[in-house]
Design a binder for these strands. Structure first.
Lengths: 266, 266
DNA sequence: CACTAATTCACTCAGTTAATCACAAAAACC
DNA sequence: GGTTTTTGTGATTAACTGAGTGAATTAGTG
């Protein structure tokens, strides 16, 4: 994706990274001309001539652009590798400051009568994958994972799963049998199966058109279920723990009836 | 620095990372209470209660907060490690998209009658350091570097310099003799000296109070000179190339008169 | 010196965000 | 059941920021 209008893409990303529209346009423009004056830049970026200077100044202050103080001034972009390196350090620095500040911020004791029935919702592919990793790492005895889509079987996920196969029982289900084959290749030490949960697919709400994403049950006491929005690729999940938890009870029942896969059939 | 008001710092950084004020405040608030309702959050963050919900929703969509859909709703922050990991992937993803897009964006040929007298200005400690690295890596025969301040002698810089000592002649000057000692320890294979450029210090404009930062001359044909603003720690540099370049001519003259340090005195 | 290009500065307009309010729905209380 | 409080949503206003424009200043050029 995003190969249609390279410059617009670049402008978007730069804005997401905190640049203003004019700044982003100027940088992208400069990335294409090796060197240029305000006039030239204004022509290729359609940023008003008179505001090129402001934009360039802030780019310069961020270490993304160099200025030749002649008349007319010449501008040029720092080489791409240097620019991304600069942006990277800026980012690392922010994360570090954030971590420090948050660790120092004093915690408030809250009379936290956390019910055992807690069910939490979260979204974002990355965030859900991270949570999945944490759950996998914390598993004590058993991991049951069902994947509804190839796209979820990332390299990192494979690695984490393989890291646990000697420790705990790893059962992995797939929505389709091609996917099962793939899983069997990548994670040879896991027990694999085809989900037996076809009812999860295309059933409930045809209008919303949701697809099952992952279903993870760890130690039969913590569960994470996610759905995928086919168009956008976004992922939403719910997540719960505790033996009393209704979700978990259901999952355990499914498991005991062989609809998922049982660790030991006899 | 920045240890006085941890929560404000965290809020600032989060805003720099793209969150709105309310979103940042909510996240920091949640980072302190393990779990909370809209009311509680509004009390500790002084975000208007009725706006908590919006803020939390966008945090949730970014994978930074979890929601328990009870009544009243409960919110909690994703563990800090997961949060930063999520932010990191977001950043990596952006950099990658940026790189792709910029590489695809077609270049424009510009009748680039680049004068040999070019002198470029750039700012930002990181950007200047990166440029320094590149120059060091590209050196063919000789590196002359004078450092005006300890803070510039970073680990990375030491590593890069050491990497070139067998390849090319490396001459390193220091503003003070303690600094020289330090350099001699860290980069044993380089020739070191005390700058002999005392006139660079505290001389020109006492009001602006600038300090010399680095002075780098590579292959006697490319030069980078930087100044430090003592209070803010910011660094500004000029940078030029070409044998005809006035700056370079001056530097070569200084060198030949022994004011810097000459590779071969006879 | 006159004229053009380059640069800066001040200002308008529009979109976004912060902040407040009014209201409906749900829980808690009596 | 009826009343009061809490919770959540939506609309509205005010403040701010950024995009866009033009006038005023400065620097080059013939």
């Amino acid at each position: 994706m995003s190969t249609e209008h390279p410059q617009e893409d670049a402008i978007d990303v730069l804005q997401q990274l905190g640049l203003k529209e004019y700044e982003a346009k100027c940088f992208v423009g400069l990335a294409r001309v090796s060197t240029g004056t305000a006039k030239q830049l204004s022509e290729i970026t359609d940023v008003p001539r008179t505001r090129i200077y402001d934009a360039i100044r802030v780019l310069e202050a961020q270490g993304l652009v160099e200025i030749q103080h002649t008349s007319p001034q010449q501008f040029r972009a720092v080489p791409l590798a240097e620019a991304t390196e600069t942006l990277r350090s800026q980012y690392e620095n922010r994360i570090e400051r954030l971590t420090n500040a948050l660790e120092q911020a004093e915690k408030i004791e809250s009379d936290d009568k956390g019910s055992v029935q807690e069910v939490w919702a979260m979204s974002g592919k990355k965030a859900i994958e991270n949570r999945t990793f944490n759950l996998l790492d914390d598993a004590d005895s058993e991991i049951v994972l069902v994947l509804g889509d190839d796209s979820l079987l990332t390299d990192k996920l494979v690695a984490r799963l393989n890291a646990r196969t000697d420790d705990v029982d790893v059962l992995i289900g797939a929505a389709t049998s091609p996917l099962q084959t793939k899983i069997r290749e990548l994670i040879p030490d896991a027990t694999t199966f085809v989900s037996g949960l076809e009812w999860l697919r295309d059933e409930s709400a045809p209008s919303d058109s949701l697809a099952i994403g992952r279903l993870l049950l760890v130690d039969r006491s913590t569960i994470l279920v996610s759905t995928l929005i086919p168009e956008s690729g976004e992922e939403n999940a719910i997540f719960g723990g505790g033996f009393q938890n209704g979700l978990i009870v259901i999952s355990r029942r499914l498991l005991s009836q062989g609809l998922l896969a049982s660790k030991d059939p006899n």
